[in-house]
């Protein structure tokens, strides 16, 4: 059974993922953002890379979730 995730936990996880390339790049090599265990993500949300996420198959720029579409 996957652990239930509360709102704070999700946002923390999500921001870690999206923030990783810019804020953690000096401390960790490229793969840092992929070290988040997949089970901590909702099934419909999958990071693709530093710039894109998949939400139920929709391939979206990460910034559209954090900052909104331009």
């Amino acid at each position: 059974m996957p652990q239930p995730i509360n709102r704070r936990g999700f946002i923390t996880t999500f921001l870690l993922v999206t923030a990783a390339p810019s804020t953690l790049a000096n401390k960790s090599p490229y793969g840092a953002s992929l070290t988040i265990p997949p089970k901590s993500m909702p099934d419909k949300f999958t990071p693709i890379d530093d710039k894109f996420v998949s939400v139920n198959g929709w391939i979206l720029p990460t910034k559209t979730l954090t900052r909104g579409a331009e």
Partner: peptide, 17 residues
């Protein structure tokens, strides 16, 4: 996508679209 909806709600909205 652009609104100030909370992230979980945004993800849910997109998933249901």
């Amino acid at each position: 996508l652009a609104c100030k909806m909370e992230i979980e709600d945004k993800v849910q909205f997109i998933s249901d679209f």
